[in-house]
Every structure is written in C-alpha cells, then in structure tokens.
Design a protein around this nucleic acid. Structure first.
Lengths: 191, 191
DNA sequence: GGCGAGGTATACAGATCAGTATACTTGTGA
DNA sequence: TCACAAGTATACTGATCTGTATACCTCGCC
C-alpha cells in the first residue's frame, strides 16, 4: 500500500539486517536497537524509514516473499517440459534450502505473532495461496487430471518439506520424488 | 532426567497455564508473571517448581508430547485392519486439530528458540523421529513395500498438514486421502 | 511440640524493550 | 545561495522482562 515510497540506501541496509536477524534469531527475540547497530544506522533513521517494528516485520516478510517468488518462477522457466514445470518449485526448494535452514519464515512468523490482524498473517496466507494457484495453473497446462486436488497435495508436500527442514531428517529428495510421481500419475500421457 | 520429582497441585496448575499460554500466544511473548497469575500461584512458587523459564518451556513441550503420543497410540489401537493402522495418526490429527489451530507447537517452539542446545530442539526432534519410526513399524507390520520410504513420505504429509493449519486452507481431508492411497499402493494385497 | 516443606505476599534488582526528544551535520537540487 | 530531506549522535521515558530477597503462613508428620 504505502510501499511506493522510494527506498534509500540506509533503508536497504536496515531491511537486509532485519531479514538476516529476524530469520535466524526470531522476530520477538531481536530488538530494533540490534538491527540499527547491524545496519550501521541510528534508531532514529530506522523509525523514519519504517515507522514501527511491526511495519519493519511486514517489510521483511514482503521482501522475502518477493525474492522467493522470483526464484520459483525462474525454476519454472528453466524447465521446458510442461510436466517438469509442475514440480519446478521443488527444484527451487533445493536451492532455497541451501541458505535457509531455519524452516519457513512465514510459518515461523505466524508462530510468534498470534494476532490475526497483524499484516504478517495476510502476507503468509497470500504466499501459500499463490503457490497453490501456481501449482494448479501449471498442472492444468500440463493436462493433469484434477489439477485442484493435485495442487493442494503438492502444497502440503512442499510445506511439510520446509517444516521438517530444521530437524535432523533429510526429506527433500524423497518429497521431490513423490511430487513427480503424483504429477506423472495425473498427467495424460502416463496412464 | 530430573522429571522424577513428584508434581504438586500448584505445579500442575502452572504447567496447565503454561501449555495454554505458550501455545496460543507464543513462548517469548508470554512472561512468567502472567503464567503465575493465571495459575493462581506466586512467582516464587513457579521458580521453586521449575527453576527457570527455559525449564518450564521444556516441561511444557514434554507434557504436550506425552498427551499427543497417547492420542496417536489410541487412534492406532482403535483400528483393527493393519493397513488402516498405518494411517491412524491422520485420524488422530483430525481430533487434535479441533482444539489446536495454531499449528505444531514444536515447530513453533523451534522458530522462537534458535539455539540448538535448548532442550526444545531435542524434544521436537525426538517427537518427529518417533512418529517416523511408528509409521515405519506399522507399514512393516502391514506388509507394505519399502516401509522406510513410505514412512518418510507419511511424515512429510503429516507435518505439511499441521504447518498449513493456521492458514485459510483445508488440507486435512486431502492429506489423509493421499496417505491412504500411498499406503494402499504399497500394501501387498492391492497390487 | 516442633520442624520442615510448600506456599503466600510484596518488594526489588538489573537488564532490555519500543519508541521519542533535541540538537547537529551533510548532500543536493532549484 | 539556500532550503530541505536524510541521517547522525545521544539521551531519555515508561513499560516489561527474568530472577531474587525477605518475611510470613500453614499444614502434616516424627
């Protein structure tokens, strides 16, 4: 909404520091003083740029969502086969997981911010619904049967893989295999 | 370890209040003063019983894990068919979700407590590994092919369903259906 | 009887939190 | 040139946090 305000160099540094700290240490556990110090900026500047900690949290999630969607869309573009495109978000998940071993930032944010009116809830919900819609569109293009059901199943697989990431389990490869199997069993030329 | 200490009536009230507050509002956001007030107890008593907030958090997760495992095992016992037993944890998930709409307490706890040496990490990891082992044992008993692979897939499905719970999506029924389909396709009398 | 465990009541220490106040500096563009 | 936007520097407010200190109460049990 008010994100049309141009971002200054200090604002970008603040946002970068907030992304790092909020994701690795948790939102409630990180204070604005620490973010200001890490970005080489005074607290006054932080408040001039973002208004409040809640707004900074919303900006953090929005920016993270933007980067993640770009990665997913790039992974889809990198595939040529329509069936491979459906499971391309799992390719992106492998890349993404390499530098993000603390699970899903949006699920984690919801865990710390129980108030449903907090902007984080809408951002997180939008992200998941966006991925579900993407799965459905790709499945439809690939000619899969029941693309809606398939999309929900792929979303659950995706989220389950992310959720188990901080645990001492390797679920990524198995989930990607299962996702491909589900898509192939629903694709028209595999039955 | 030191959980052999007998629990007093005040201790039980404290633990009950902590369970409710930690789960619904988040661990970092809830102070010990609030827990003491809610359980009708002095803060001094809380510290006499649990030593520190971190120990109380560990006790909260341990108790929650105990109740959840009992529910899962009861759901398995309620089924007679060996194939139905494999997907029984998804029956339990339906019951459990009715009163727990804030996702998985263990994933949420890891989101707020990034330090891997915190007891919450071991408790959460143990819970997931326990469920995975249970899936594998039930699948083996049911005569499923590749019970290890199947168990990991069922675990990811289970966690994905829990993780998407706070979102405006209904994933439970679809996941349970997929779980049953996976088990049936691996069971000996269905191929 | 008395003693000790468990609990109450209240106050406090020391740290940290989000957010504000005041005064100064610096670069840029009209 | 000069006005303005962006940022620096530092101090502060009031609230809240975990954890402790001190003094008292009240049972049950040896």
């Amino acid at each position: 909404m008010e994100n049309t305000r141009p971002m200054t160099a200090a604002g970008r540094r603040i946002l970068a520091a907030a992304e790092e700290l909020f994701y690795t240490r948790g939102i409630t556990a990180v204070g604005v003083d620490l973010i200001a110090e890490r970005s080489g900026v005074t607290k006054r500047t932080l408040y001039n740029r973002f208004g409040s900690k809640d707004h900074l949290v919303a900006a953090y999630l929005t920016e993270r969502d933007r980067r993640w969607r770009a990665l997913v869309l790039a992974a889809v573009d990198a595939r040529t086969d329509p069936v491979d495109k459906v499971t391309a978000p799992f390719d992106a998940l492998r890349t993404w997981s390499a530098g993000n071993t603390r699970g899903c930032a949006f699920i984690n944010a919801l865990a710390e911010l129980p108030d449903p009116s907090h902007p984080a809830h809408r951002i997180a919900a939008d992200q998941k619904l966006w991925l579900r819609t993407l799965f459905e569109e790709l499945a439809t293009t690939a000619g899969c049967r029941e693309p809606t059901t398939l999309a929900t199943r792929l979303l659950v697989l995706h989220e389950g893989t992310l959720a188990t990431q901080p645990l001492p389990l390797d679920t990524l490869s198995g989930s990607a295999d299962l996702a491909r199997a589900l898509v192939r069993s629903g694709a028209p030329d595999t039955r």
